[in-house]
């Protein structure tokens, strides 16, 4: 699997209004690469959910997207509080978001489930007090 292209984004954890900017830029990049619309949609949604999570829970982080010949890999890293119980966090409807976040339409407990739904591979490594790294892949073939 040879590395074709890498895109790196810093996700600003202080600006909720600009949350999604990295995903939006990535969508543009993938369009320019001429990838199928549904693939672009899946990558965009999965990345956006991760980006929102980083802003809501972890004061931001980084997003790296690697475009290989056979898949697109998304690696989201943060140094936030970590996820105490990953199995519980993966359940639709489970959320630790505040009322303020919910009033903006987030915190429905759909973020991680959506990321899994829209990707072909997803792995979460998380340590409480240290941070979380999520790796996702969307197959191109």
């Amino acid at each position: 699997m040879s590395d074709v292209l890498n895109f790196h984004f810093e996700v600003d954890g202080n600006d909720f209004k600009s949350a999604g900017h990295a995903s939006f830029l990535m969508k543009k990049n993938l369009r320019q690469l001429g990838l199928p619309p549904e693939t672009i949609r899946r990558v965009s949604i999965a990345m956006y959910e991760g980006e929102i999570n980083m802003v809501i829970h972890a004061r931001g982080g980084t997003a790296d997207v690697n475009v290989y010949e056979d898949c697109i890999e998304i690696i989201l890293k943060d140094t936030g509080p970590g996820i105490k119980n990953i199995e519980q966090a993966m359940q639709e409807g489970f959320s630790t978001a505040t009322d303020n976040i919910r009033s903006l339409g987030f915190g429905a407990g759909m973020g991680l489930p959506n990321m899994k739904r829209y990707t072909d591979y997803m792995n979460i490594e998380s340590e409480v007090g240290v941070g979380t790294t999520i790796t996702m892949k969307v197959n191109l073939i």
Binding site: F16, A19, G105, A108, M110, N114, R117
Partner: peptide, 25 residues
């Protein structure tokens, strides 16, 4: 109106009816 719900369920090309009005829509 729940943005992540919409994100996960709306289909490409759908007209999306909502009462949410913040920039995240």
């Amino acid at each position: 109106d729940l943005l992540s719900w919409v994100m996960g369920r709306a289909k490409s090309g759908n007209a999306w009816i909502t009462i949410m009005s913040n920039v995240n829509i």
